[in-house]
Design a binder for these strands. Structure first.
Lengths: 332, 332
DNA sequence: TTGTACGCGTTATCAA
DNA sequence: TTGATAACGCGTACAA
């Protein structure tokens, strides 16, 4: 029968629990012969230490919580997987486990409880909206190690894509292919990304000495249908745009649909660029040019930083923005 | 200062730990005044029991492991999220936590260790291939509670979509819209789904008294590119099909691409139906008619059954197949 | 109705 | 180099 506890093992091997524990942990203070005897035995009779007993005694927790508020899921279905992959890579490399939590809306009390009950040693929180920043402050007050992903708070470490830079890249690309009248379609005002991308848009225009036209700015709330409406409005202008930068791909699909309906060719009449590089971009007709976020890398980086923060708490919240990249297809 | 342990709480409240424990658990044997005093106090000074101590003492584990082999991820990116959502729903309702594990390939040893070390009380394993069925047997031998999702083994409880029925529905639909020459594109031989869908295909043909033609069966390995090649072959036949049932949507995209390249109209010349109802179906041109799997429900059901299996181990492995549904769009 | 005291399976201290 | 033994914090017979 296979041994269940150290106690049992110790009995069989005629050594103390402590010695086995040492042998398992590669502690130096074990006679090499004793170690060999123990490890040899364990080849046959596998033993798996009870993680709860270990955690209780050592006060160490090797679990990271991954919080997905439901609205973030809706907004970000397409990169939830990559976020998980990046976090999993970090976890595998560092002997951590990932615990998933979906919340109907961001619940800092639940987060606090998970931490205080020692269920998790720290939290990765994905894509909260601006409304939720005060709740984050709550976690900071309670010294919960937190890494915020795809959102920004000055209370805790934040990780994301350099959205301003992304907005700049996108707009610059439209300029580079000769567009003179470039419109911008906003996402939702409660999300961080859109505003930053808008800044990049304005910066690119300014740099190219192109006028900023408020009538070229519409809001699509990150939704397909609203972007379609927004595009209708844009094309109804006396002087409609010849390039549209949509703050995400989902909206870009709506934009292109609306343009097709209006009898415009993409990209000949109006070039369209999106943001996110969701899988559909590749299959759409025309394939959508877009800006890709390094989602996996962001999650991976956040994980590593979080681990660091757990082990050696630091004062000032960190901010790390990774570089987006242009993915040129056919729509622009 | 907020109390960290029952011990501390007991001191402050001048009662024994046991009494607090009772009050927290709504045990009847507590004077209502005592209970009130305790609960009132806890309004201010929140206390979160250490989960490891609790688990150690009670021998209860309220964590379910969700295993995603990497190849399953590749094959099933698009419904990983729904699987997680369904599992999360079950977890929330039953006070369970979800722990995510991604594995480069299915690793039953790791699974065993997670269980024996009391990290998880049971496992939901997603979409293993036929190669992995013996490893599953390993888990059964060790009495690990397992729910297999989107795969089948006679060693453990299995949950999925009724793929044969789905194949039948899809083929029947093509027949219903008047197609006489219906081809089938297989997925990969190592995955369960495809073979079952093929059975449904044959059943529908037989029922309609249409001949089964081996030359109308090609293999696309669930991949876009291979399906494109397969379609070329089909269309090069002397008597090419007027309807194609592709064992998944990803391949259906390749099929439609190949048809367009060959100058065929979809659905007028050749109708195409897929399987899975991935998001792209809706946005593709033409929007793709397909068979939807009730992914969330499958995961949710599996979770509940797993919980049941943990609490009262049963002898015979269960098999539960939920009904797929036809989603009619434009391609067929 | 309330409290005492032991057990859960580790880790870690300290002495041998 | 090894081994008692005391934590760790909660659950729960059993006693009061």
């Amino acid at each position: 029968m296979s041994a269940k506890t150290l106690e049992e093992l110790a009995e069989k091997l005629k050594v103390s629990r402590r010695t086995i524990s040492r042998a398992l942990k590669n502690d130096a203070n074990v006679a090499s012969e004793t170690r060999r005897r123990i490890l040899d035995y364990l080849e046959k009779d596998k033993y798996f230490p009870n993680v709860h007993a270990a955690s209780l005694a050592s006060k160490k927790i090797n679990v990271i919580g991954l919080i997905f508020p439901k609205n973030a899921f809706l907004h970000a279905d397409f990169f939830a997987i990559d976020t998980i992959k990046g976090a999993a890579k970090f976890a595998n490399e560092n002997n951590y486990q990932l615990m998933m939590f979906t919340q109907s809306k961001f619940d800092s009390d639940q987060c606090l409880q998970m931490y205080k009950s020692k269920l998790v040693g720290g939290l990765m929180i994905v894509a909260i909206s601006k409304d939720d920043t005060e709740k984050i402050e709550d976690l900071r007050k309670n010294h919960v190690p937190v890494a915020l992903l795809f959102a920004y708070s000055d209370a805790v470490d934040s990780f994301g894509c350099d959205n301003k830079r992304g907005g700049y890249i996108a707009t610059k690309h439209l300029i580079d292919i000769g567009r003179k009248k470039i419109a911008f379609i906003h996402g939702h005002e409660n999300w961080f990304d859109s505003a930053e991308r808008f800044e990049g848009y304005k910066q690119a225009l300014e740099e190219a000495k192109m006028p900023f036209r408020p009538d070229y700015v519409e809001r699509g709330y990150f939704r397909y249908e609203d972007a379609q409406e927004a595009t209708k409005k844009l094309m109804a202008l006396d002087d409609p745009p010849d390039g549209i930068f949509s703050a995400n791909d989902r909206m870009a699909i709506g934009v292109i649909r609306a343009l097709k309906v209006a009898g415009k060719r993409v990209p000949e009449d109006v070039a369209v660029i999106g943001f996110d590089n969701i899988p559909i971009c590749d299959f759409f007709d025309p394939p959508i040019t877009t800006v890709a976020q390094p989602v996996m890398e962001i999650a991976y980086t956040a994980g590593n930083d979080l681990l660091d923060a757990i082990n050696s708490p630091h004062g000032k919240p960190r901010l790390k923005y990774l570089e987006p990249s242009l993915v040129i297809r056919k729509s622009a």
